[in-house]
Design a protein around this nucleic acid. Structure first.
Length: 745
DNA sequence: TCGAGTTCAATTTTT
DNA sequence: TTGAACTCGA
């Protein structure tokens, strides 16, 4: 492709800090690829001196493919095989890679990071289960008052501000923080004893390691040329790590798009750009404003929405593309009809199913569309974060692999010791656990000497011995066979299929077995390696992989995903659903300007996914939060320049169904069509929700009330029908208590 | 200690 | 509606 002047400029500036301000579909990826090519081909920079950091595996894989294509080389199979290739991976993969490399050379004591080289990574679920255990058993706290998720949030926040458990004591200014402090200390203890780290630790440990001079020096030399994509989504620690690496040669190029910054809840900090301008004050700034994907209307539309944000760099995205597309607004009477209209459009349109992308705000919102597509026999795929690896059967097998890889992984060991049931009950596990903690032993050590534990009866000891034998055999095997075969072996020796499917039949059974096959299939990618290596790398990559990465490009199906997930995609036709106040923007964000602006950026991201056709839909009422609700149309719709919008003709849709149905009936078709229209009219006009008709005299100031959506609250202000209610969940909400579904408690 | 049956709480966004 | 956490009889 031909680069434009701006892109060309970005490509050629290599020995200088560079800030590329890119907007949606400005071909930044192509520019970065060209830049890598230029460095290697024209400037003879060794390819393994280049590091490019991305945010998702999807982006990294795509970049690697592009680079491999222009360099005429094969792309490396794993990060450990990238000898003659630029290091193009995600933040997390690269830091793990560096950590492992460092741990091979230096002892954990020397590094002060309390980690051995075969460490394991805890995902969100592991983290919660560890914390639950701490809160319940060690701190004896009520989990309603101190839910593990909330504590996890505080700990994550602390970690990303580089506050260690010990230092957290200084942060205590409330009961909750006192609990967090205690839990944090225990949590860290657990991580160390299991030789584990969580996602936050990946960054923090890397930062700690790189602050050791000789190590930093090594990596500064090794990766002289740095590029960071999606820089607006970096957080404080990531910023500092990059800064350390860049601080010798200053060959840092970052790509920044503040209107696509949608990860502040993951501690992404937009202030990083201010710091960047300070820290690299002579950086060259290049703006890429031309969009090469979407049509004029879509861009005008996106611009008109993002213009409502007060923060951020002013921008005007533009394009030379033709104006022939349309933006249609579907205002459906309810969620079912919304879904059927979308289904029908997909069905009617020419071309492949895979041209269609359906977006929504939260994962749970896919259901109605799924049902509708299913009925219409349209193949679809829902991209859910980690969904595949969340399935019980997959998790179980991965737990096995984890323990085989690292027998000290207590959490994993406890998961599998009685899966499938082998009569090692909770009581026995608890006893062993006490021994383990009191004598700082590991599970393998305890099981080896199980006869020494007096509290256990012979029967229990025997079960444990049998398990131990099985486990040791598997460990031995893991040195001889690659991971894909190892999985099969586990399934075989544990009788796993029998266990997982014995109470199932038909489809469910098949799907479980298919999942296991799929796991083995994924693992075969690592077949060419040494057995133990294949196990280690497979486990590492599995913990970072998402549903999206397993996407099969060849088959033809409609794709459904959240807007967040869609950030890396473009599609010919996009359906953007659930455009209602409370839902998008979400009710958690509408009270806070910063949060609201992030939602608006999310809207911008969603709109700019569309290349040619954009449909935006909402339903006047829908089933949500286990009840029918009526929400006003999203403020984002109001912010749109209305001249860009066409209303989708609902009667057109009704009539189509009409004729479709009446055709099937001979004779009375006229009667039928009349009946059908009136039936539709019923659906259209009749609200399914009951608007409450409360007796307002029953409500008083400071009354406790409950609401189906916001749970419990207290009336803090009351004037006639209008009440302000402070809900325990979040902020105060103003509502008309005569018609609102509130109830005195 | 199991497991069938019952209750009760919960929905942002994900590397 | 789902799933996790409970209850209770065997």
């Amino acid at each position: 492709m031909q680069l434009n002047t701006k892109q060309e400029e970005a490509k050629n500036k290599i020995n200088w800090p560079l800030l590329i301000i890119a907007w949606a579909w400005s071909w930044k990826t192509a520019t970065l690829t060209a830049r890598v090519e230029y460095m290697i081909r024209e400037k003879n920079i060794p390819s393994n001196n280049i590091m490019m950091v991305t945010f998702t595996n999807k982006a990294a894989t795509e970049m690697r493919e592009r680079v491999a294509r222009v360099l005429w080389v094969e792309k490396p199979r794993s990060i450990y095989a990238a000898w003659n290739f630029p290091l193009i991976w995600t933040f997390h993969s690269i830091w793990i890679f560096i950590l492992k490399e460092v741990l091979l050379k230096y002892s954990s004591e020397e590094l002060q990071i309390w980690l051995r080289k075969d460490f394991i990574i805890y995902d969100e679920q592991d983290k919660i289960s560890v914390l639950k255990n701490i809160l319940k058993n060690r701190l004896n706290l009520d989990e309603k008052e101190f839910p593990a998720r909330k504590i996890a949030f505080y700990i994550s926040n602390a970690k990303n501000n580089l506050i260690t458990a010990k230092w957290y004591e200084k942060e205590i200014d409330s009961t909750i923080k006192e609990v967090v402090y205690k839990a944090y200390l225990e949590y860290e203890k657990d991580l160390i004893s299991n030789n584990a780290i969580d996602f936050d630790d990946i960054l923090i440990k890397t930062y700690a390691v790189l602050r050791i001079w000789k190590i930093l020096e090594y990596y500064q030399e090794k990766y002289k040329y740095l590029m960071v994509d999606e820089y607006q989504d970096t957080n404080l620690v990531q910023y500092e790590i990059v800064k350390l690496l860049a601080s010798k040669y200053w060959n840092l190029a970052v790509v920044w798009d503040d209107s696509q910054s949608i990860y502040s809840w993951r501690w992404a900090d937009m202030r990083n750009i201010i710091n960047f301008k300070k820290d690299y004050s002579d950086a060259l700034v290049i703006k890429l404003e031309q969009n090469y994907r979407s049509t004029k209307k879509i861009i005008a539309w996106a611009n008109s929405v993002i213009a409502k944000n007060t923060s951020g760099i002013k921008k005007e995205l533009w394009t030379e593309n033709d104006e022939w597309s349309h933006i249609q607004y579907i205002e459906a009477p309810d969620d079912k009809i919304e879904a059927s209209i979308i289904t029908q459009i997909i069905k009617e349109k020419e071309g492949d199913y895979k041209d269609n992308l359906v977006l929504y705000r939260t994962n749970a919102q896919s259901r109605k569309i799924e049902e509708s597509l299913l009925m219409a026999n349209i193949p679809y795929r829902v991209i859910w974060w980690m969904k595949f690896y969340d399935r019980a059967e997959i998790k179980d097998l991965l737990w096995y692999l984890k323990v085989i890889h690292n027998p000290n992984d207590t959490v994993a060991m406890k998961r599998i010791i009685n899966t499938p049931t082998r009569k090692i009950w909770a009581k026995s596990i608890e006893t062993m656990d006490n021994y383990r903690e009191n004598f700082s032993l590991t599970y393998p050590q305890i099981m080896e000497n199980i006869d020494d534990i007096e509290e256990l009866n012979n029967w229990a000891k025997n079960s444990i011995k049998i398990f131990n034998q099985l486990f040791e055999d598997l460990v031995l095997k893991s040195h001889k066979i690659v991971v894909s075969e190892l999985i099969r072996e586990i399934v075989k020796v544990t009788n796993y299929e029998e266990y997982i499917t014995s109470w199932l039949s038909g489809e469910e059974k098949d799907s479980k077995l298919e999942n296991i096959d799929e796991l083995v299939n994924v693992a075969t990618e690592y077949n060419g390696m040494e057995p133990r290596e294949s196990l280690a790398i497979f486990l590492e990559e599995v913990s970072l992989i998402t549903d999206m990465d397993t996407k099969d490009e060849r088959s033809d199906y409609v794709t459904l995903m959240t807007i967040h997930t869609s950030k890396w995609l473009e599609q010919k036709r996009v359906f953007l659903t659930w455009l209602e106040e409370w839902l998008f923007p979400s009710f958690r964000s509408i009270w806070d300007i910063a949060a609201l602006e992030e939602e608006r950026r999310l809207m911008y991201v969603a709109m700019t996914r569309a290349r040619e056709e954009l449909y935006i839909s909402r339903a006047s009422e829908r089933f949500n939060f286990w009840d029918y609700v009526r929400n006003p149309e999203s403020r984002f719709l109001k912010e749109i320049n209305k001249e860009y919008l066409e209303n989708y003709d609902l009667w057109n849709f009704v009539n189509k169904w009409n004729s479709y149905f009446s055709k099937g009936l001979s004779g009375n078709s006229e009667w039928f069509s009349g009946f059908w229209s009136s039936f539709w009219w019923e659906i259209f006009s009749k609200p399914k929700i009951k608007v409450a008709d409360n007796d307002i005299s029953q409500f008083w100031l400071w009354d406790r009330v409950s609401h189906p959506k916001f749970w419990n609250g207290i009336i803090t202000n009351l004037s006639w029908e209008l009440a302000t209610i402070a809900f325990t969940w979040k902020w105060a909400v103003k509502m008309n208590i005569k018609i609102a579904p509130v109830r005195k408690v």
